[in-house]
Write a protein that binds this DNA or RNA. Structure first.
Lengths: 258, 258
DNA sequence: GACGTACACTGTACAATGTACGTAGTTGAT
DNA sequence: ATCAACTACGTACATTGTACAGTGTACGTC
């Protein structure tokens, strides 16, 4: 991981790009662009979906759109950092956002969580695409607006609604992270999940005294061996969402009384 | 981010290294080692604490211990991947783990969360040191054992205890991630947090229609502008932990009745 | 119709990184 | 004295993001 330079950052330019506003007034001079920002971003997303975020390099994206590496910078001046922000905003914008209809707040919040879970399942690279701050593009804003609306009419303050949403999304992301790691493991080690845990358990047994770690050995073995990684993430999601909704319920009920 | 090769992986060797067991029977032959695994790992941790995970390179670690880059591989054959696993295990092992005394379960679980929060505050690089699987060394196991014990006597099943702990730690990590991002922002942009949000808001105002995103503009502005990033993470932590504990409470109460 | 300006495009080059490989030196056991 | 096992390290390479300079193109202006 070289700390490869993040090109020249320019928040204003990035923002314009996110909203697809060209900021230069004149634009008809010179050769007509052979590509678009969207085609570049699209290619990058496809690469990331199919081969992971590591497969998204300036060179691979350029090849995918049939241009030379440096041409990418014509459409995405901010380089790779900006490209990833654009990718995130596009997949956010594209997500499904059904109307709430007659759903109660628990179902609405569960739906928000499920949609985010689905998003991470469809684009596992989102987890690894850490940005220091969310790119404030149409996708991010639209998603934010929609998700905030799930808490309408509960009597929560603005700050509370924001905190509640952060709380829910934080859980979903933590769970998605576990799921992504579990999914990546077999590929990395070329072993099935169960086989890996078994091998580790066998090795661990030689090195660690079970009587010193009674809970860890018992529970860890049960959690690790018995269940596959994927199933475990699924169970953790269900368990966690029950806790999340119950936790929010207390707040909502308290607010109702006041 | 080059997908730099992860050296030759060998789970058995890594496990021995984590527990500091030398697996070769003979060891007196040849020149006496001038370093130890621990000195290398220590130097890496110091680098990461002071300058971030990106500052931990094989070359910088080598320089810190006064050796040549390739010598690092003598002590950590698995290369950088293994080094990071060793770093994680060491800081885990070193963490404080006070006895529970007479504390009730809510206080115990809150304490677990607080300790993890403190750990991430002291070592922000932990958040970025994503491993496909936790290194099963003494630090990880000791920490796991201790944290599991916080749920003793609540009548939860093994699987439930594991799920509950995962839930709590997942929240703390998500919060720590936000905090780390907020803390990294000012350095990256060379602006104060408030100034950055203000600049962004000003730019956004030109590009986005507030009437289309009423909640997002109102709540986002309130959440972003009014509070600094650090304060916001603090508030999110308190809010979240209340929800986490309330959510677990429902489970515990239900179990008590049965 | 000539022309110049703003733009698209690209080749080359560089610094940083993880690490494979081969070589040289060291030391205790035999 | 010999040697095998071990430490130490210099060199080399592939991969990455991207700065920079040069080349060509097409529209607006005259």
């Amino acid at each position: 991981m070289p700390p490869n330079k993040p090109a020249t950052p320019d928040p204003a330019r990035t923002l314009s790009l996110l909203w697809r506003h060209s900021l230069s007034p004149s634009r008809t001079r010179g050769p007509r662009p052979s590509l678009t920002v969207d085609r570049v971003v699209e290619a990058a997303i496809t690469l990331a979906d199919e081969q992971g975020l590591d497969a998204v390099t300036v060179r691979s994206v350029a090849e995918a759109v049939g241009a030379s590496p440096m041409s990418v910078y014509t459409y995405v001046p901010g380089g790779k950092t900006e490209l990833i922000e654009l990718m995130i905003d596009v997949v956010y914008l594209r997500a499904d956002r059904p109307a709430w209809g007659e759903l109660g707040w628990r179902e609405r919040v569960l739906s928000v969580a499920n949609q985010n879970r689905a998003l991470h399942a469809a684009h596992p690279w989102l987890i690894h695409a850490s940005t220091s701050r969310p790119p404030l593009g149409p996708g991010v804003i639209t998603k934010y607006e929609y998700e905030l609306s799930a808490f309408d009419g509960l009597g929560l303050s603005d700050v509370e609604v924001d905190a509640a949403l952060t709380f829910v999304l934080g859980f979903v992301q933590a769970n998605a992270r576990s799921a992504a790691e579990a999914a990546a493991l077999p590929e990395a080690t070329a072993m099935t999940d169960a086989a890996w845990w078994e091998a580790q358990a066998e090795l661990l047994g030689r090195v660690v005294d079970p009587t010193k770690f009674p809970r860890a050995t018992r529970i860890g073995e049960a959690a690790g061996t018995a269940q596959g990684g994927a199933y475990q993430a699924e169970a953790a999601y269900r368990f966690g969402m029950d806790r999340v909704l119950d936790g929010l319920d207390q707040l909502v009920e308290r607010k109702k009384k006041a």
